[in-house]
Amino acid sequence: MVHMGVRVQTEDFDVGAEITAMRLSSANIGAVVSFVGQVRDLNDGDNVDSMFLEHYPGMTEKALAEIIAQVKVRWSITDALIVHRVGELKPQDQIVLVLVATAHRQEAFEACECIMDHLKTDAPFWKKEQTQHGLRWVEAKTSDEDARHRWKSTT
């Protein structure tokens, strides 16, 4: 059974429950790799009290589904899931979950990292932080572009 799902939600997610559901969906699965992103309390030297995540409803889901579709072409994937939260978040809140299930671990590790690198540059999310100096939009990092591009050279 192939799920290949994306979810954009304000609610928190249960990593354990998501892994169990994916793991048990097929006996062909030999490896599940997970990535969990967490909101930090420090960014660019300033304390972050909270952040707000804006997104582009409609495009966000499409962009995430396309990222999974691209990764599927490159690696043999049994299942993949992206859950991304939006709205108000606090330090140590979970913000993003990526799960990849494959027969063997190497493909799951690589595909999971590739999904995150593409999510960072291609999915329409924007973070606005509340710091001790007030509200500010988070600036995109060129290192994220570099991380995404390294997957191109070996395609």
Partner: peptide, 10 residues
């Protein structure tokens, strides 16, 4: 059509 700054999710 949509216009926006470079994205900062994840």
């Amino acid at each position: 059509v949509a216009f926006f700054p470079p994205v900062t999710g994840g």
